[in-house]
């Protein structure tokens, strides 16, 4: 259970089991995808992800569209232009064919919108109870143009941290879609393909250092990963974090912090300070970046720490959570 929340526990699991077993140079980057050099000087980006979301449908998307967007976005975060996808389905015995067809249609539509083609796949049917309806695994490849490198080691104190839109929409939409909470809130998942928006960003801010999509674990977790990998401090401004009112209200009620809630159509970017203005203007001109905002800056100290500056001048530590957050107030 604790390994599911996308924090320190899952990082530890990855380190202990998989990195250990498969150790190689490409994997050790621990990016969202692997970057593999091609003779042309371009790089091949290769990413994979499994999708197990419940419920299968939620306002704004489904497990089908998510399975396309998630992998396409992982490629985009490496600076790649995604081209091809594979899709593998683990289907629980008795899962309605009509529903499967609907999910496949979602995938097709999402792929078309993202400019990728599903070129191979696989299907397995397992006994009732051995899967939860349907699990989808996608893998994708794309090309990173020569000379483009987005990596934590390029991040410098003084750089600016941007987010491409509001926080927490996906996670809250899915939580509410489970239907067991007596809570009316107009919240739609933000699931969307980001490769186009990344191109917009890179055109406006060619010096962009680093990109990450804050999916599971949210902005808080990816900022912690950045702080650790780059050996810097990420200093966020509480008042600058864009959160839609119903999302904020739901988070408040649930006692969760939008900083740790999943997004499926947002990225966090670090850009040089002098390009931040241009980046923000360009992002905001794009429909997927309308709510883009500068949310903080990179500092040299305290190393490997994410801070949240509050309105009364306090600075709270945004932790990498070990598992599902437990109350800490005594």
């Amino acid at each position: 259970l604790a390994h599911g929340a996308g924090g320190k526990a899952s990082a530890a699991l990855i380190d202990a089991v998989f990195l250990e077993a498969f150790r190689n140079e490409a994997l050790e980057q621990l990016g969202d995808g692997a970057l593999l050099p091609l003779p042309s000087g371009d790089q091949l980006a290769f990413a994979t992800d499994s999708y197990v979301v419940r419920p299968h449908r939620f306002p704004g998307g489904s497990i089908g569209s998510l399975a396309v967007h998630g992998t396409v976005n992982d490629l985009a975060m490496c600076g790649a232009r995604p081209s091809w996808l594979s899709a593998a389905f683990v289907i629980e015995e008795g899962f309605p064919v009509a529903e499967l067809a609907a999910l496949a249609a979602d995938m097709a539509a999402a792929a078309a919108a993202a400019g990728v083609t599903v070129v191979t796949g696989d299907t397995k049917v397992v006994d009732t109870g051995a899967a939860d309806g349907v699990f989808i695994t996608t893998a994708g490849v794309g090309l990173v143009p020569a000379g483009r490198r987005l990596a934590a080691d390029r991040v410098r104190p003084g750089d600016v941290v941007l987010v491409s839109g509001t926080l927490g929409d996906h996670g809250v939409a899915v939580l509410l879609a489970r239907g067991d909470l007596d809570l009316e809130a107009d919240v739609t998942s933000d699931t969307a393909p980001l490769a186009g928006l990344v191109e917009v960003l890179l055109a406006a801010a060619p010096g962009t250092r680093w990109l990450r999509d804050p999916t599971r674990g949210g902005v808080g977790t990816v900022c912690n990963e950045l702080a650790a990998q780059a050996g810097v401090a990420v200093v966020l401004q509480e008042s600058a974090l864009p959160v839609r009112r119903p999302v904020g209200g739901a988070c408040d009620l649930l006692g969760i912090d939008p900083l740790y809630v999943a997004n499926e159509g947002k990225f966090v970017a670090v850009v040089p300070a002098e390009e931040a203005g241009a980046a923000l203007t360009a992002l905001r001109a794009h429909p997927l970046g309308a709510d883009a905002a500068v949310i903080g800056r990179i500092a040299g100290e305290p190393e490997r720490i994410v801070l949240l500056e509050t309105s009364f001048g306090g600075s709270r530590i945004v932790d990498m959570l070990v598992g599902d957050p437990l109350p800490r107030i005594c």
Binding site: D252, L253, L254, G255, P325, L326, P327, R328, I329
Partner: peptide
């Protein structure tokens, strides 16, 4: 049950 965790403390 502590509904909302830390929020219930507040």
């Amino acid at each position: 049950v502590l509904p909302g965790g830390d929020a219930a403390v507040r």
